[in-house]
Design a protein around this nucleic acid. Structure first.
Lengths: 195, 195
DNA sequence: ACCTGAACACCGTTCAAGT
DNA sequence: ACCTGAACACCGTTCAAGT
């Protein structure tokens, strides 16, 4: 019935979504109430209706990230037809590759660095890493490695995950894909790269 | 001749040193003029005698880091008696391990995250990574791998470097050392961890 | 040559008041 | 139920003035 311009009325999710965009683009410290309010078309005072303060917003971001990472492992588990090696590749591509959730692909490293200085972020990262570790180790055990060997290789896989997210490389997309493929083959015990 | 209390008079290096402490402890965005001035016992106004502005201080930090990383590669090259595998372990330990320069050990990841949002930091990180890559690849080539295989393994080694710097693990120091040892053995082509 | 002190702009937080 | 607007504290930057 109303003919007036749509008044901007927000819910906490809208603030969290906007906050994650800022986080991914420019780090935790760019997640500021006033610029965020401007982006959302409201005054900064209204933020405090939805959240107690800035730390409460940051906690909500972490909760959303943890949820998403857990979902991801569940989704991969759903690929009943995929081999352990294919699941590893899926995990890599869904975390840092082309199939990664764009909302979080760039947020991953921002969150990881944030965790160096904020105990709340440390807890979230530790939880996600621990879940990933168990998952990845199980893959390698599924490939026939001993528990010790699986832990070693899982550590290297997680390193690869981080390196792909973090390192700036002068490399074409094809070269990257090929190199990642050889890396996974190496970790999985095949040695196609030796030739 | 003067009997007065030592007046606090600083040079640019003193500001850079204090800035790196803040960077390592709490990230780039904690490198703020006013708190830094307080730590150094002067007023913030005096900062602008030594530096044009905050970006100029940040640029000086990056220059110092690049210098240090280059020095590190040179120092390792000086270990004429060390095998390629031992050099890799040295690089790892001097970058993230117990032998790392304490001024920069914690700054490493802070700088890397910083590079996601600041082009000047991107340039510095890219330069350091490129130099490290060449160096590490040469180690693997020295171990008898083809260029392609060396590049693959160098990528995994850099990942390991990042993982050790970044990941929060529930692991004793002994377990960590053993796992890192097995990781290096695996990358170097030995397979002691299979047993 | 280096530092102080006062000034102004920007963001976090609060809160009384609006709709 | 959600938003505005004004208020106050903190940090970046400038600059005239001190020693």
């Amino acid at each position: 019935m109303s003919a007036e311009a749509p008044r901007t009325r927000l819910d906490p999710d809208a603030w969290i979504g906007g906050a994650i965009e800022l986080l991914a683009a420019r780090g935790v410290n760019a997640v500021k109430i006033e610029p965020l309010a401007r982006r959302l078309g409201v005054t900064k005072g209204s933020f405090y209706w939805h959240f107690k303060d800035r730390p409460a917003l940051l906690a909500a971001i972490l909760a959303r990230w943890e949820e998403r990472q857990t979902d991801l492992l569940v989704r991969i588990a759903g690929h009943a037809d995929a081999s352990p090696a294919e699941r590893l590749r899926l995990l890599l591509e869904m975390t840092v590759g082309a199939y990664a959730d764009p909302e979080f692909r760039n947020a991953e490293i921002a969150i990881r660095n944030w965790s160096r200085t904020d105990p709340a972020a440390t807890v979230a990262v530790r939880a996600v890493d621990a879940r990933r570790s168990v998952y990845i180790e199980d893959f390698f055990i599924g490939l026939g490695f001993t528990e010790t060997a699986a832990r070693t290789r899982a550590g290297l896989f997680q390193g690869l995950l981080l390196a792909e997210a973090l390192l700036v490389r002068d490399e074409t997309a094809e070269d990257r894909t090929a190199r990642v493929g050889r890396s996974l083959d190496l970790l999985a015990g095949r040695h196609r790269d030796e030739g």
